[in-house]
Design a protein around this nucleic acid. Sequence first.
RNA 1: GGGCGGUUAGCUCAGUGGUUAGAGCACUACCCUUACAAGGUAGGGGCCGCAGGUUCAAAUCCUGCACCGCCUACCA
Length: 873
Amino acid sequence: METKYNPKEVEEKIYKIWEESGYFYVKTNDMKEKYVIVIPPPNITGFLHMGHALNNTIQDILIRWKRMSNFSALWVPGTDHAGIATQNVVEKELLKKGITRKQIGREKFIEEVWKWKEKYGSRIIYQLKKLGASCDWTRIRFTMDQTLSNAVKECFIRLYKKGLIYKGKKIINWCPRCETALSDEEVEYMDEQSQLFYIKYPLLKGGYIEVATTRPETMLGDTAVAVNPEDKRYKNLIGEKVKLPFVERIIPIIADQKVDIEFGTGAVKITPSHDPNDFEIAQKHNLEFVLIMNEDGTMNENAGKFSKLDRFECRKLIVEELKKLGLLSKIEPYINRVGHCYRCDTIIEPYLSTQWFVKMKPLAEPAIKVAEQGKLKFYPERWKKVYLYWLYNVKDWCISRQIWWGHRIPVWYCKNNCPPIVEKEDIKKCPNCGSEELKRDEDVLDTWFSSWLWPFSVFGWPEKTKDLEIFYPTDTLVTAQEILFFWVARMVMAGLEFMGEIPFENVYIHGTVRDSTGKKMSKSLGNVIDPVEIIDKYGADSLRFSLISLTAFGQDVFLPPDFYIKGRNFTNKIWNSARYILKRCEELNLKNISFLKNREDIEFPEKWILIKLDEIVEKTNKSLEKFYFNEGLNNLYSFYWHDFCDWYIEISKVYKDVDYIKNIVIPVLCEVLIVSLKLLHPFIPFITEQIWQNFRKYVNLESESITISKWPQSTNYYDQETLNKFERIKDIIITIRDVKTRFKIPIEQNVECFFSDELNQLEKDIIKKLAGVKEIKKFYIEKDIFVRHLVWGGLGISFSGIIDISKEKEKRLKEIEKLKKILLNIENRLKNEEFIKKAPCEVIEKEKKKIVELEEKIKNLQKDIEFIERRSE
RNA sequence: GGGCGGUUAGCUCAGUGGUUAGAGCACUACCCUUACAAGGUAGGGGCCGCAGGUUCAAAUCCUGCACCGCCUACCA
């Protein structure tokens, strides 16, 4: 074994073995209790980023833990076809060759997308494997697979027949660059510095009414001006007519409660085809609908002389012309929220359009119930409120997209105006009139319309497959807050609607990974830390360890650029400690080492580390059960490094009795190592597997791979006396080291020590080795001995030439002062009747004990001072 | 506007009412002691954002405030 751990050599090789051995494959004919996670399918266009790394590490921890705990643990992987994103990527590729999608046509374009998918679509899968994800790759799914497409069609048809899917003309979010409708969730709002324009609209009877708007170009589509019926300023104008500048349309002034008297001028222009509120008002008042834009964001013929202009060019021009006409009374700076396309960042246009919608209220009701009743659990729980709030206010879901890549809507229209035909199989004839002149709906479905079926479509729904029967519902969903509405809420609705059961019981929502200043990591900000780069340089284990160790339960994590160091150092520590133990096995030529069956006849250091080991098993289980991954991992870190390496392994070097070493020390070292490896394996799978393999030559290990080994159980091994004994030795050693450091005596320079209490030979040997002591003698006071008084007794250290003894006195005086303060506090607490009355007994007992301890400590310090004073006389 | 989260060591963060508030990194001193310098030993460093309150007891619970971040909403 090398002195430095080299993850690069190890990880790739090990992953291959895991995959080939089929450890991640779950057989349905040999089922134990199941534990199922379906992956949040990454986009085929995606690259692994820190968010993925965190998300998938957490899933892997859960799955590996459950797999070792004797569950049939299934993690279903897959990818998402990501309609708009993928279409954009492929379009850009084609454009490099000077080809547009419209030139080659729909069929050819889709072929191109499939080609692209075959080439690059599994990039992210490859990266997940690098991370160590133990998915069952035999069950990998893609949202455009035949079976999943079938599920989408089935879902569409069922909802359509139930009247939950309808086609309607409404204001939707339109992306003029992607030239498609978007759902409300796909729009990202950003506060932007814009302007509020105050425009005078000429009244037919003479004079003006002034309106305020942020989008003056939409005035070309105005069909009314609205005021609040209570507004005294405008009461007499209600029913009057306005002559709209430029288009010269005569439009009415109407009254509506919704108009805010306080805002702007109190009069609002109504553009029913380009604003959701105006749309509603227009419906109520039977106003005209005038669409003034083309799908690409240019003005259409209704815009008169402004037609063909881009919408923002048009805005500029309109403002100029209004100025010329003297109709622009003022411009105020104004901050408002502007919607952007979440795929291409283009400013969204609210746009009147005919689209397909899902009626959400009936689907939301059961999804609300399961959360309210606590059947669906959120970790951290606060997300339940967010989830419910969204569902209480849910609006209909616009599911049609005017793009080519995706699931095409299974609807045909007959030339003879028959009702739309909704069918799973492609049809040739109208079932109504027999006409063969049918036209299929051009649109495809929102990508999330396939994702919301994911927890059962991956198992073959609507076919009644064995997988579906066994694995649905799944157990835990691990995801980020960003897609709570997009995906989680909708999956719950779909699960309840189509399967009659929630798709998962636990929703664990982890934080967002940000840079060290709190910003989201994004390519455009240039603040991205690339996980793949870190895996290549320092190993997946380093990345996983550092990420999990830093990420508190449900909290966002701010990553400093050197965050991987903790994991890198720790894996190296594990590596070297294992190397040491292995070397000792080798030297003694030991084979088939078994763990101790009998823990009676062993010395206290062995007992101590085994007690500590038992304790860490229990702690780890508790942390994992509550999804407190960082707590679990940091406890393991501290146990392994500080208890095991710093203390026990060092003590293991003390023993000279070869039989005891062979029969007791080595088996204990091996047991602690192996059990620790198991506990660490879900977090850092590669290095733990590699060491497991290295030890198979020497230790009787239950399985050929740690991946399929048995998860440790605590045995309630405990003994207070051993713990006390160990603490005493620790205290003595630390004190000697401290004194030596203080007096600049090198650790390796052996000194003489004197101790008043009894010490057995083993204890003496341990102290000698770990504190650098030549000999330990019975305590007595002599001139050139430096004395420290411990709770356990007087400790003297022989030395020549103390450098500054007055500093020692000062230090003790300071310490006494501090302790006296604490002592006074506790004494007052104990004098307090309320405290005695109300505090639990054990707390009071604890406080009393503390007093004794503090008094003892103070006494010892005073003895030290007396000694120092006597010496310096 | 509403909601949620955060504010603890120089930095990134733990701390789920009960000792004298912790970790990693960074820092200081001494050590290449044959598992490990990606290491060892010892150490320095905190009005726990501010102001009140509840409690025998508050970093922890409550209220208000300040600042940072996020999510949401039809003030055009």
